[in-house]
Amino acid sequence: MFTNTHLLVVDDHQDIRDPLAAYLRRHGARVSTAVDADVARALLLQQAFDLIVLDIMLPGESGLSLCKHVYEEIGTPVILLTAMASAANRVAGLETGADDYVVKPFDPSELVARIRTVLRRLQRAEVGIARPTLPVKRYGFDNWTLDLEKRELLSPAGESIPLKTSEYRLLRVLVENPHTVFTRDQLLDMTTEGFTHSFDRSIDTQVSRLRKKLESDPRRPHLLKTAWGNGYFFTSDVKVLA
Score class of each variant (00 low, 15 high):
R30S: 15
A83W: 00
F182A: 15
A227W: 00
H222I: 07
F182G: 15
D200A: 15
Y101G: 14
V53H: 08
P156S: 11
Q206C: 07
R26T: 11
A227R: 06
A157N: 07
E152V: 04
Q14W: 02
K212P: 01
S198E: 08
A34S: 09
R219N: 11
H69I: 03
E95T: 08
F106N: 12
R138H: 05
V39M: 10
L163R: 05
R17N: 11
L94P: 02
D107L: 03
P162L: 12
A113Y: 01
F141K: 12
T165I: 06
E152G: 13
T133A: 15
F234C: 12
V207H: 11
L224P: 03
S109E: 12
E167M: 08
D217S: 12
R209I: 01
A242M: 04
E159Q: 12
P108I: 04
R26V: 07
D147Q: 09
S198C: 02
L54G: 11
R17V: 03
I161D: 06
T235N: 11
M57N: 13
T235H: 06
D36I: 03
P156K: 08
E72C: 05
A37E: 02
I52K: 06
R41L: 10
D18L: 08
R151L: 07
V207Q: 10
L163K: 05
L94Q: 13
R131W: 00
L24T: 06
L154N: 06
S62T: 09
R211F: 01
R151V: 05
R184T: 06
D18A: 14
A98W: 00
A29M: 04
L54D: 12
D38M: 12
A88K: 06
P59A: 15
R25L: 05
D11F: 01
A21E: 02
R30C: 14
W228I: 11
Q14F: 01
G93R: 10
E167D: 12
R25E: 15
T191H: 07
I161R: 10
L171Q: 06
D12A: 08
L43H: 11
E152W: 01
L45C: 12
L111E: 07
E110C: 03
A130E: 09
D204N: 14
E73S: 14
T235P: 01
V10I: 07
N143I: 00
L146M: 10
I16P: 03
K213I: 03
W144R: 14
M1H: 07
G63S: 03
A42G: 07
L148F: 02
V91L: 13
H179M: 10
H13G: 07
G128I: 02
K150H: 09
R114D: 04
L51H: 09
G128H: 01
V91K: 13
L134D: 13
D36L: 06
E193N: 09
S65G: 07
F106H: 08
F49K: 10
A29F: 00
N177G: 10
T165H: 11
D185E: 10
E72W: 01
K104M: 04
S208N: 14
L51Y: 04
G75S: 09
Q206F: 00
D217M: 04
